[in-house]
Design a protein around this nucleic acid. Structure first.
Lengths: 346, 346
DNA sequence: CTGTTAGCGCGTTCAA
DNA sequence: TTGAACGCGCTAACAG
């Protein structure tokens, strides 16, 4: 009943060939104006829809890109996807999504799965449980499709990337705490499997040293990207003989947890202990005691990644040169760290 | 160089036919154990990847589903997608995403685009700028692929849906405000193009009437899904001769805006004016003055929608019966409305 | 300007 | 148990 109509159907109806129909539909120049018009009209009339599967099989281009992320229900990731989709959809591409839930094996599985679907490119933000199985990455690079990291990257030859300057972001955040008068600044970080965490750690460290502070490894504690976990680890900090008077967190959620714990103990934020987060998740600006954070402009990051893809995808042959974009982090100063009477953003 | 290897390549290497290879790979029963083993081994050895495009063209099944939503960077939508992807990915399906940005014409365009990509099913949450062009919906229903609404639905024969009971949710929220002692309850809603808003409006209204309250249209104000807009419209409410002492918002973001405005005027929440939101966005529980809200269990909603799809997709022929699931809303009581000393959740 | 032919990679008859 | 041939829908090369 609801038979799919092909170019053959419309060719039959018009007493011409399928190739002519194809040419007319694709705006081939050497086709008579009459037939073109005729074809286009009957195409609409018969409600013809091009089968992109067939076209993809023929051309080797699927007009689909894959996006591999830990999870989609984190504002940062969904915002990046928004940017990618926004930019790429207007060029006729579709976005396919895979979540890894931070599991390394799902990462490999998803990549394979996307390759099977013959995507034209892959955008990826690494999982945080990396078992360092670079095998499938190497295979991926051999394929002649653009492969672009965003945020959570890895240094692989032939793979482009868009990140923010995490070192600088952490440096800015830490320096800001110092400026506000903090004398003993702790770091709530994450495991160091990912470059972003390593770089934020180094930025924090360097800012301390550059300002004549002593770097104290005891003040560096690992935690997860989670409110409750952040609070739990903050307990450890506050239970120290000499607790910190400033905490820099590599994510906003643990920063919130830290603030909760500090207030629960009757201490004041930012007067007793100042707190700075990272990512500028929307909620940091929503809460009464708004949280100072580092903005990563995720939507913009997505747009740029998409742009890189669009440029790379033209070179069918081989990706000769990688593109690496490093965005500048923005320090968004809010109440959780503002002791002096400086200008407040937001 | 990186030539894609097909079943022909492995057939040549083994001196057999492509059909045999195909059969062996697909676990066809009538194939000798020896050849099957041989084929499977060399397949792995040559790093063969099935071309799903070709398979899709042949079989008519793409193993791709489309998800059409207003925007992905709203927690509710990304959480639903998470649920869909989680459930469906394990069955070999991929999720393709389209955003409408609440523009009706993009909605039609995206649907067509997805049909062109020959998706096996479509999940959709309507845009809020509906120009009521049901044409493409009808066409969509004619196609023999599952079509499932979630949250923002429309009543169309042959189309399944998963929603929460918005009427009940609004009823619960309003009743809760009454229980807390509110005497004059306002409604910050949205345009009534979508059923969800209409139903929340009706639930609010009915709760008032059932409790012997007078329904006053002046206390019903339209706004957008946005903090600033919510605050702006709250000004109007507070400027009335007799302002409300309770506000129910059909979204959490305007609820936050309302609280901001109330506090800016030196009034107290919940003592002077109580506020309840809708959706239970994560941030409502993060802020110090946590917001009472209605939980829609979005991830679960996604999982159920996916389940419906998986069941419907078996009936190649025609979708004979629609499935309609209505989830029960959960009232999450928090500080923004808790005047009495009742139990607080979260 | 248009028709003929062929092939993208796969699964599936029909024979053998 | 396996091979040969065909078609899914489309585009591109090669004629005319």
């Amino acid at each position: 009943m609801n038979k799919k109509i092909t170019i053959y159907d419309i060719a039959n109806k018009l007493g011409i060939t399928a190739s002519t129909v194809s040419r007319a539909l694709n705006g081939n120049s050497k086709i008579s104006t009459v037939t073109r018009k005729l074809v286009n009209e009957t195409a609409i009339e018969m409600n013809y829809k091009q089968n992109k599967l067939a076209k993809a099989l023929k051309s080797g281009k699927s007009y689909i890109v894959g996006v591999v992320i830990p999870r989609i229900d984190i504002d940062f990731f969904s915002s990046v996807i928004r940017g990618i989709e926004e930019r790429i959809n207007s060029k006729g591409y579709h976005v396919m999504i895979c979540q890894t839930y931070d599991k390394g094996h799902l990462e490999a599985k998803n990549i394979n799965s996307l390759l099977g679907a013959h995507v034209d490119g892959i955008f990826m933000s690494l999982s945080n449980s990396n078992i360092d199985n670079t095998e499938y990455f190497n295979e991926l690079v051999k394929k002649e499709i653009p492969f672009i990291f965003f945020d959570r990257k890895k240094n692989i030859t032939g793979v482009s990337s868009v990140v923010i300057d995490d070192f600088k972001g952490a440096y800015m955040a830490t320096t800001h705490l110092i400026t506000q008068g903090c004398k003993r600044i702790a770091l709530l970080t994450n495991n160091h499997l990912l470059q972003i965490y390593e770089n934020r750690y180094l930025g924090y460290r360097q800012a301390l040293l550059d300002n004549g502070f002593e770097f104290n490894q005891d003040l560096v504690i690992d935690t997860f990207h989670d409110v409750v976990e952040g609070r739990k680890k903050t307990k450890i900090l506050l239970d120290m003989k000499t607790p910190p008077d400033g905490i820099f967190c590599v994510h906003d959620h643990p920063a919130l947890g830290a603030i909760q714990e500090i207030k629960a103990r009757g201490l004041r934020v930012p007067e007793d202990i100042s707190v700075v987060g990272f990512s500028n998740e929307p909620f940091t600006g929503f809460i009464e005691l708004s949280i100072t954070s580092i903005d990563q402009s995720p939507t913009e990051m997505g747009r740029i990644a998409a742009q890189i893809f669009l440029e790379e995808v033209r070179n069918y042959k081989r990706i000769t040169s990688e593109t690496h974009v490093v965005l500048t982090p923005k320090l968004i100063i809010r109440k959780s760290s503002l002791r002096n009477d400086t200008a407040v953003i937001s």
